[in-house]
Amino acid sequence: MTSQRIALITGGNRGLGRATALALAERGVDVVVTYRSGKDQAEEVVESVTRLGRTVAALPLDTAVVAGFDDFTAELRRTLRERWHRDDFDHLVNNAGISVTAAFADTTESDFDSLVDVHFKGVFFLTQRLLPLIADGGRIVNLSTGLTRFASVGQAAYGSVKGAVEVLTRYLAKELGPRGIAVNTVAPGPVATDFAGGIMRDDEGFRAMLASQTALGRVGEPTDVGGAISALLTDGSGWITGQRVEVSGGIFL
């Protein structure tokens, strides 16, 4: 890798993606963030990263539409050349996600397909398209969830799809190891974002219930997860690969 590292974060305009972009910028890493519909949010992230003294770009991307990945890859390549005079980048964070909450008996095929398209099919084929642009010695972090370890009513499809991401992570670690690329999963527990309608951010009773179930006694904040991801992408963690790192405050131990 070159001395100046560049990270690409999907869904980097809000929530965990935004927190990761800022955490990496604070560690001296330049970033490219993608957004599906939150252009204004993405521009705010660009301003925040710029204030931290890092170079940054924001590009539109719908991770559910594989047909658009070739055009996105071409635009990313142009951006890398224009902003960084490079043909590659160092770190990929597959963060973009959606939430569908429904009991197993009520989950529709449309619900299921939406989750698969964003959380698994999109991760699989976007990573595949980007492989030629990821520098040897780089790193990949895929986002999973604590719900692959413990069950919660209404999350059967979401948890199952994220379980597939964890399996994919191990296969990627095996296949990309010869290039020196480390691949890991970060699995957040309950975090106060707008995910799932913002219930873990806004519902004080629900927050208190979850906090009572964690070893550290609180619901997580986006910075908790962003910091963990940035730690896996920066100095001192290059020997870690194929692992699931749960960032949950020790919930349901």
Score class of each variant (00 low, 15 high):
R51G: 03
L61C: 07
A196M: 07
R179K: 14
T185K: 03
G12S: 08
V46R: 14
F125E: 06
I134Y: 05
V32G: 01
D224P: 09
V141D: 03
L168Y: 09
R170C: 05
R129F: 07
T79H: 07
P178V: 05
R83Q: 12
Q155W: 10
T223A: 15
I251T: 01
V32P: 02
L61S: 01
A211V: 03
V153K: 14
S152Q: 12
A231K: 09
S37K: 11
L76N: 01
L61D: 00
A182H: 12
G205K: 13
A96E: 00
V29A: 06
A103V: 02
N184W: 07
G163P: 04
D30E: 03
G177E: 00
F150G: 00
G159N: 02
D113Y: 07
V49D: 08
H119R: 12
E82A: 13
V161A: 06
T20W: 01
S3K: 12
A103S: 15
D111W: 08
Y158H: 09
R54Q: 11
L130F: 01
T101Y: 10
T101L: 10
M1C: 07
A215H: 12
W239C: 00
T2E: 13
G217F: 01
A135Q: 13
Q243P: 02
V32A: 07
S110Q: 14
I140E: 04
G15N: 08
A135V: 12
I199C: 05
E175W: 10
I140W: 06
E43L: 14
A164V: 03
D117M: 01
V31N: 01
F206Y: 12
V56W: 06
I6Q: 04
F120M: 10
L233K: 05
R36A: 14
V46T: 14
A157N: 04
R149C: 01
A57W: 02
V219R: 00
V93C: 00
E221P: 00
A182N: 11
V141A: 03
E166N: 12
G68E: 11
L233R: 06
V66F: 03
S152F: 09
N95R: 07
T234V: 10
T193M: 02
G249Y: 00
I251C: 01
I98L: 14
G15K: 08
T34H: 00
T55V: 13
G177K: 03
A19K: 05
F89K: 03
P60T: 03
G159Y: 09
V33H: 04
I251N: 01
G177P: 09
G220M: 02
L61Y: 08
D70F: 09
G97C: 05
A58E: 02
T223K: 15
T234L: 09
A231G: 08
H119D: 10
G226W: 00
L216S: 07
T148W: 11
D235C: 06
L59C: 04
G242R: 11
V49S: 02
M209R: 11
G238P: 04
T34Y: 09
L115A: 07
S37C: 07
S248L: 05
M200T: 09
W239A: 09
G146D: 09
E175V: 12
L8H: 04
M1R: 11
G189R: 08
W84K: 02
G236D: 08
D88A: 15
I181W: 14
V56F: 06
I181N: 05
R139C: 09
A102N: 13
R36D: 04
